[in-house]
């Protein structure tokens, strides 16, 4: 079973992964966006780590809801509301249970991803964070490792796609051949989940 400490580890591991990969995210974003994805997520997850330390929420749902609110208040851009909504809605779906199972997390994360799809008006294949998240949700029912691998594969599979949402969509066909920065950071988030479970 997964408790609040596990979810705090997940968020801390995400912050470290974003720190480590910030330059790469920004490089991917400068190819088809506006070169700020790394810096924005770094600012957001640094703030998440700080607020979780200060307020120490004691249920899995409360950890994710607080993390999501903090992202919305600190990141800006599209990624703030989108990642913030993902974590908030996942946290809300987990309710106030003290411990949850991996299967329950998979269901809740599916609700979070659905909320992201609704907010951004995107579907699978639009070259967005959903292309990493949706396969990861699917695979999380099986194992954490499968989810990590599915997210990684999903991010890579955005390379040949044409962007239909967000700033990359302005490029039309010129967005083909580049890996989507949002899908890449989503793979980091799921990779950190796998790390927290290890």
């Amino acid at each position: 079973m997964l408790d609040a400490a596990f979810f705090r580890r997940w968020m801390t591991a995400t912050a470290s992964a974003v720190d480590r990969e910030a330059a790469r995210l920004t490089d991917l974003d400068s190819a088809i966006g506006d070169a700020d994805h790394g810096a924005n997520l770094q600012r957001g997850f640094t703030a998440v780590t700080a607020v979780l330390e200060n307020e120490a929420p004691d249920t899995p749902g409360a950890v994710l809801a607080l993390a999501g609110r903090q992202l919305i208040s600190t990141v800006g851009g599209a990624s703030g509301p989108l990642y913030g909504t993902l974590l908030r809605r996942t946290g809300k779906a987990l309710g106030d249970r003290a411990e949850v199972s991996r299967e329950e997390l998979a269901t809740a994360l599916g609700e979070g991803a659905a909320a992201v799809a609704q907010l951004g008006g995107a579907v699978a294949g639009d070259k967005t964070m959903l292309d990493a998240l949706l396969p990861a949700v699917e695979a999380l029912g099986e194992s954490f490792a499968a989810a990590g691998a599915a997210a990684e594969a999903g991010a890579l599979a955005t390379v040949p796609l044409q962007a239909r949402k967000g700033r990359a969509s302005y490029l039309g066909e010129r967005s083909i051949g580049h890996q989507d920065p949002g899908a890449t950071s989503s793979a980091l988030l799921i990779g950190a989940l796998q790390e927290a479970a290890a």
Partner: peptide, 11 residues
């Protein structure tokens, strides 16, 4: 004003 080229936050 948001960060450079980044929209402000709702707050």
């Amino acid at each position: 004003p948001g960060e450079v080229f980044t929209s402000p936050v709702p707050d």
